[in-house]
Design a protein around this nucleic acid. Sequence first.
DNA 1: AGGAAGTTGGGCCACCCGGCCCATTCTCAC
DNA 2: GTGAGAATGGGCCGGGTGGCCCAACTTCCT
Lengths: 220, 220
Amino acid sequence: MTTVLIADDHQLLRQALRRAMEDAGLVVLGEAGDGAEAVQLVDQLRPELVIMDVTMPVLGGIEATRRLHAAHPDLPIVVLTMHDEEALREEALRAGASAFLTKDSSMQEVVATAIATAAGEALSAELASSILTEFKAAPAAAAGPGAAVAPVEPSPLTPREEQILQLIADGYSTSEVAARLFISGKTVKNHLASIYDKLDARDRTQAVLSAVRIGIIRLN
Amino acid sequence: MTTVLIADDHQLLRQALRRAMEDAGLVVLGEAGDGAEAVQLVDQLRPELVIMDVTMPVLGGIEATRRLHAAHPDLPIVVLTMHDEEALREEALRAGASAFLTKDSSMQEVVATAIATAAGEALSAELASSILTEFKAAPAAAAGPGAAVAPVEPSPLTPREEQILQLIADGYSTSEVAARLFISGKTVKNHLASIYDKLDARDRTQAVLSAVRIGIIRLN
DNA sequence: AGGAAGTTGGGCCACCCGGCCCATTCTCAC
DNA sequence: GTGAGAATGGGCCGGGTGGCCCAACTTCCT
């Protein structure tokens, strides 16, 4: 018997996933509506597997995965997302996800991945791609074995950068963000510059959109 | 027996909806992955009801609803969305939707709404809110009976404005958009100005985000 | 101890952007 | 046929924005 926790902010998806899991013989211990709740419920319910959505309020799925993986290194986490972005996939796996699936996947794929993951494959990244390969063309490079996660991408954003980009997305101008954070407008612009660099954007609009796709920004 | 067509770009949701519908005794004639496909399949399969997602590639759910409603005025369309925006709700109902639900809804709500809608209530807006009222606080104003849809919002965007905003979202600058459309940069700025006005945005970033929430813009 | 990264801040400058006026043309509806 | 709305364009201007330099301080890891 395998126990599982489902974290997704859409009740519709949660119910659908629960049902599919239960039909496959898994036991759904609980459902979380955001990342923070997921972290809390894992400590409380001790599931053997977590199904985690990326875009969630309060605490995003990636960050929730990072925290869960830090606290429970052996807990398998299957990350589910709306947008199939290569960078996001890497982010998820680097955060400690055992597998990465798109919502374009079928219910069967999700269940199969969940069961396989819970069975305890050691090589996380390999598993994710091998399962996905059955449905799509092979993604990209196969990293070597071990812990080295490959220096593919520089990194996403620092906490401060995320905070600033979130405020920009919320509609604040550079100087308004500065005022809210009690820092200089120049500093905000400097942060934005490094954000553009990291997200490969050339202006705030593209940066915000990119962040939305990645799932590190809330749409209010 | 009631026949239904499901339009959603996420296979996961489609399967979940199909299952819930079938369990409730409805017959799912087919599934569409985008708005254009939905329009085509309606003509082909002649369902008695359509479940339509808002954010879909190729042709958005709102526009698809508008076209379906124009071609089949009696066809009930239940619009489903990620983001619970009052403006979007109005948009959907104005486009001819019979009901409006969020993905925060439960499967039961969706099925109940579908069945009630298919049963053929005349007062569309009323129905949507009355059903939602059982779960949330009453939304807002109850419009009078009849066809007058109330002059609540001015209107969304003109085709040209949507096109321009889409290009902005795709990463083009004002002058690049102008070059692509063979018009003056000043004209693009003028269109943007009226877009800001209509979407209540003060810059392109907010306008694009607003459009994304409304579902009239693709995220590439 | 030393280096890397994050946060804060500066100056400078060209250019873009948004706000506020305006006019012309075309189409469509009343 | 008159008027409303859409699409096209103009000028002007102040302030915001992004690019490209640089520096200081803190924290953290090695």
